[in-house]
Amino acid sequence: MSSLADVGRHVPVTIASVDGERSFRRRLMEMGLVPGTRVTVTNVAPLGDPLEIEVRRGRLSIRRHEAAHILVTR
């Protein structure tokens, strides 16, 4: 199992778990990043961070170190 920060672009993955401090992970989950959700990293910002991800038909920008808290499976 790897984290969302490590998957390549355009590789669809499924969220296995979200960890981190309570209000941090709740915020991510309330935006729809819950276990079982399909996510794809669609782009990386020109300076290497943050990532652009597609989740639930929307595009979000998320920092690498935050994405590292989201564990995913292929």
Binding site: E21, S23, M31, G58, R59, L60, I62, R63, E66
Partner: peptide, 10 residues
Amino acid sequence: RRLPFVIELP
């Protein structure tokens, strides 16, 4: 804060 910086790209 340790809150995530998640913004939407509309």
